[in-house]
Design a protein around this nucleic acid. Structure first.
Lengths: 196, 196
DNA sequence: CCGGTTTGCTGAGCAACGCTCAACAAGCTA
DNA sequence: TAGCTTGTTGAGCGTTGCTCAGCAAACCGG
């Protein structure tokens, strides 16, 4: 009992890839309850059962870890939203909107924590967020068969801010039916991009 | 030279009110370059020429200081936006929109830092922000002579998110004239609140 | 002028956190 | 078994949020 009285299994070594994935996964699991910026290395390392030092072996600094987690969350969202290859063009945007609302309904905390963490503070993190919004706008403009000039990009991005806000408050207080919400969002988008 | 070799004036004592106001003022001056959450007590105290401890004499903790600074910034914005008493009703919203765009044009960094800091992270800070938006929506609904039911509040709040986003990107890249921007914003608002 | 009270104010110091570094040890291979 | 690679750790440093005992500047009554 003098040296190395370790309670659990003797010691678990993981491959670099496994460990990195595990750490990102832990970050994703904490996102629903914590904006990404409030994750502490201590907490993540504790949950992974490793020392703080090891996390810095895989991520140069806190920021790099944050952006990795945020990018993973963004990829999950994009995978969920992007239309399946076979979908007819006129249904793609509708389908994306539908899945978006469904995602917010299913994971409201994750959604809020993601948007909050992405919007605020750290520029590196919000850069990932902006990139994700940009990709969604790109898809929308393409499937709507519209030229993506600067004005239209601005309008669709702003419409996205509108949508995020409205869907967020609608989930907390459903003032209209789900179908009406979708119609309204789609209608506002159509009227906006019709300008110019 | 053994004891108390102080270079400047012997020591400056301020009244509690003065000191508090000074500290909030320093926070306001730092806002253009720093989202509120990234203010450090150290930096603020250094600029005020006092010890870190004193700041905690006036604000129980960092959060309380942040909210005080955010509230001060919000009050400045509201004072600037709210219509003067004599204005005819139909011009009030137009005037607010105009002043809002003007404010963003004049202080783009302050605006960004304010919105960023308010949206992200700390719930206490974003509470102040939400309260400010709520007051603006209240004024808008009143002057437009509309009932403020839950749906309309949601719509106007979401329109405000739309406006924030669009004006923010328009300032960086003016794709339309200022007048066209104002018309568009006003038109979208009118169409939204006409629903229901 | 002097002792006393109020109160603005400081310095030492603790805990938590981000981060570094030298070194240990698990697992593979020769 | 020796040796190499590399996953992993513990000690420790600087910063930051925060506490607390106590100093000292200003206002008092005498």
């Amino acid at each position: 009992m003098t040296a190395s009285s370790r309670p659990g299994p003797p010691r678990l070594r993981r491959s670099a890839g496994d460990r990195r994935a595990q750490l990102v996964q832990i970050g994703l699991e904490l996102l629903p309850t914590t904006p990404v910026q409030e994750l502490t290395i201590d907490e993540v390392a504790r949950r992974a059962g490793i020392s703080r030092s090891l996390l810095f072996h895989y991520f140069a600094n806190k920021r790099e870890y944050y952006t990795a987690v945020t990018r993973a969350a963004a990829d999950l969202l994009l995978d969920h939203l992007l239309p399946e290859p076979g979908t007819p063009a006129e249904q793609q945007v509708t389908g994306m909107l539908d899945r978006y609302v469904g995602w917010v309904e299913t994971f409201p905390e994750t959604y809020l924590a993601f948007v909050r963490g992405a919007g605020g503070g750290d520029p590196w993190v919000s850069e990932v967020y902006e990139e994700t919004r940009g990709r969604l706008v790109q898809v929308a403009l393409t499937t709507l068969d519209l030229p993506d000039d600067a004005l239209r990009r601005q309008l669709v991005l702003a419409w996205f801010a509108f949508t995020e806000d409205l869907v967020g408050s609608w989930v907390q207080e459903p003032t209209v039916t789900r179908a009406e919400l979708l119609d309204l969002l789609r209608d506002v988008l159509d009227r906006l991009v019709a300008r110019g």
